[in-house]
Write a protein that binds this DNA or RNA. Sequence first.
DNA 1: TGGGATACTATCATAAACGATACTATTGAA
DNA 2: TTCAATAGTATCGTTTATGATAGTATCCCA
Lengths: 115, 115
Amino acid sequence: MENIKSETCRNGVEASLEIIVGKWKPIILLHLLHGGTQRFGEMKRLLPNITQKMLTAQLRELEEQDIIERKVYAEVPPKVEYSITEYGRSLYGILQQMHEWGVSHMEHMAKKNSR
Amino acid sequence: MENIKSETCRNGVEASLEIIVGKWKPIILLHLLHGGTQRFGEMKRLLPNITQKMLTAQLRELEEQDIIERKVYAEVPPKVEYSITEYGRSLYGILQQMHEWGVSHMEHMAKKNSR
DNA sequence: TGGGATACTATCATAAACGATACTATTGAA
DNA sequence: TTCAATAGTATCGTTTATGATAGTATCCCA
């Protein structure tokens, strides 16, 4: 407990949310955190329902925010690799905590709805 | 580090996001966490730009999820008080961590953009 | 000469989140 | 008898997020 006051705070929490929120970002981050470097096509295969447009858009945003790194190889056919940056890795704690809380929350709600 | 695998994980992280995501939810939660019990009208005053519709909607969702409690007094004019539940309080760690990471992230981006 | 492979971009369409505004019910007090 | 006070709902409109689909560039290989 401390200086997490409503106003300042709001900005901090929202800045974090900006990174991890969205239909695809959490799973993109987790795949990169767990699976390491991946090519565009691999990622697309891992997210069967995402469109190319969405995948590119999400990756570009994460790159802009220094969370992931994009490495283009000058080959034909093209090859582009994505990986988590060291900085991006600092998100792991938050994701971990959200994961744990979320899993127990799902149990909580399941219990509630079975009453 | 452990069982936070992409698939399971995704659900956990997204379950958490469902609670705290939105234009108003983080600040609503923080106000209730810091300020304790509040009446509807007080909350509305604290969130100058929110519409009544939005405020009610967000409060109802949080109530559904057991994060906040809604107490109606049978008076005229009406009086309704909102407060964080004990269960809701378990979100504090996540919000705290997001706050800290977010603040440092804002600094990180500020530095980057001033180069 | 015509695919196939890869990582895109462009255009248009739909869905979800958010907002503006007006309306309701109740009662005591002016 | 009209108004203030409070906590809402209802209806419609806008903005933002997401999706479907088609097109682009390059080089090799059959």
